[in-house]
Design a protein around this nucleic acid. Structure first.
Lengths: 267, 267
DNA sequence: TTCATAGATTGATCGTGGTCAAGTATAGCA
DNA sequence: TGCTATACTTGACCACGATCAATCTATGAA
């Protein structure tokens, strides 16, 4: 049963492809040769580029590499070479401390760019792991920098993306330092919701790409707490959750959860 | 009594200037006309630029504007125009929520660039407030972008700075989500220490530019907790603190505090 | 000097969420 | 189909740090 549109191809709910689909995917490989025809061109880097300059981006991109669930796109402390745009699937980035402890720093969905935190220093600043069967486009950084030097619009867009990344991270820090478990989880659900909407998928009915464990780690909580909050929300009729399938029944209530904090805390 | 070297001029411990010094500062104003002669040129943007291209940076920079303690360099939700390099003094950036609650997102010391989180969107993403008498150089963003398009080295440096900012913020998130009060404060002290060292000032003997309140807010703690940890460290002979004057007596012990966490937490 | 205000410290109490432990459900695979 | 490993849920208990409250210390003004 095929239920979900990801990038340009239909994939199964669990992110897998049937053999037939996999073959089909390779058969249509000429299709992946062009940012022009990519369904994400209005979210990804092409969004910043004029029609007639698009081939210059296509010249430097290595498209359509597919990873299976759990595979690493790159690893912390290996030489930094490229940024990656998610084409379909989803990616988790995390920092591993010397002692092996993990801190999840972000989740990336189709159209989003991974690796912007690694532009300083010789090596990748984090590890990027694929949460489900995922296809990415690779942008070698030296070529990308060269191109942004020639295309002011693209350079401007890169600045915007990186700036947005800083803001996201500040928001996360704020969430971690000031908000309760319920507020953090409500915020994450709403963030995912709006990102699904951007991709013209249902903002109220989606399946979480990440495990409870990853959510907990990302939000600075224990897995048990995440579990408890999910069931609490469910009992309150705010969401319905079975495993990774989530339905937002009362979006306004979720928004209230995140804002209530601000109200009571403020002034 | 003049005790501290800040940028190119000696200032008082509290960041103020005597009238004589203020006059002197304005008298030497031709000095501030050149990035070339700035003592921070090896930390700030000039670091990325060849000698003979430096005048192009000087053409776009508006140098040497001075703010008194507590004044705002820019405010959240006002139109974004420029990034600012701290020349002397220090700056605190924070996000103000709808309800008026503050979240401190960073402290900036001489040679560091403020405003990189505002490059996306129309308005500044945060408010920048001066913690002591502070001098800054202003880089209008449109001119800066134009220049980075022409100077690949400068563009590269901007990418590095923004990437570093993302990493810093990730580190902060990690600190907030995983570390105890003691670990967070030890980490902040060490961060400040290394940033003083960069400027060739004493890494073990400095005065905190920010109030306990700001430290608490930044680290996601209550003021009382910050106070308690300071006295605990003092009782253990790790630091000596009287008000904002801090002396790091045992840097290794501080490093141990931050790493112990990783040890016991890992694997 | 004295007073006023803000900042910093210290103590006592309480609550959120972590930890430990057990149990249930689900996915992957032969 | 069953087995196994992993993911998820639920419960009981406890600790770190928040909160409230009081005191102490600076700084600046009249």
């Amino acid at each position: 049963m095929i239920t979900r549109l990801c990038g340009l191809i239909w994939i199964n709910p669990d992110g897998s492809l049937t053999m037939a689909q996999a073959i089909q995917l390779h058969q249509v490989s000429p299709l992946k040769a062009s940012c022009n025809q990519c369904s994400l061109s209005n979210l990804c880097l092409p969004l910043a580029i004029e029609e007639n300059d698009l081939d210059r981006l296509e010249d430097i991109v290595q498209q359509g590499r597919i990873y299976n669930r759990g595979e690493h796109i790159f690893d912390q402390s290996t030489p930094f070479k490229s940024c990656f745009a998610v084409k379909s699937g989803s990616v988790k980035t995390s920092i591993i401390t010397e002692s092996g402890e993990e801190q999840v720093t972000g989740f990336f969905m189709p159209g989003e760019l991974v690796g912007l935190d690694s532009l300083s220093g010789e090596n990748y600043a984090c590890t990027a792991k694929v949460l489900e069967r995922t296809s990415v486009c690779e942008f070698p950084i030296d070529k990308l920098e060269e191109l942004t030097g020639k295309l002011p619009e693209l350079q401007h867009h890169m600045y915007r993306l990186m700036s947005q990344e800083i803001q996201n991270s500040h928001q996360l820090a704020m969430l971690l330092s000031k908000n309760t478990a319920e507020e953090r989880i409500a915020a994450l659900l709403l963030s995912l919701s709006s990102r699904f909407r951007r991709r013209r998928m249902s903002p109220t009915n989606f399946s979480l790409p990440m495990a409870r464990n990853d959510i907990a780690n990302f939000l600075g909580l224990a897995v048990e707490t995440v579990s408890r909050v999910f069931t609490r929300f469910q009992n309150q009729g705010i969401i319905r959750a079975r495993g990774r399938e989530v339905e937002l029944l009362d979006v306004e209530a979720l928004q209230l959860v995140t804002r209530d904090f601000a109200r009571q805390g403020g002034q």
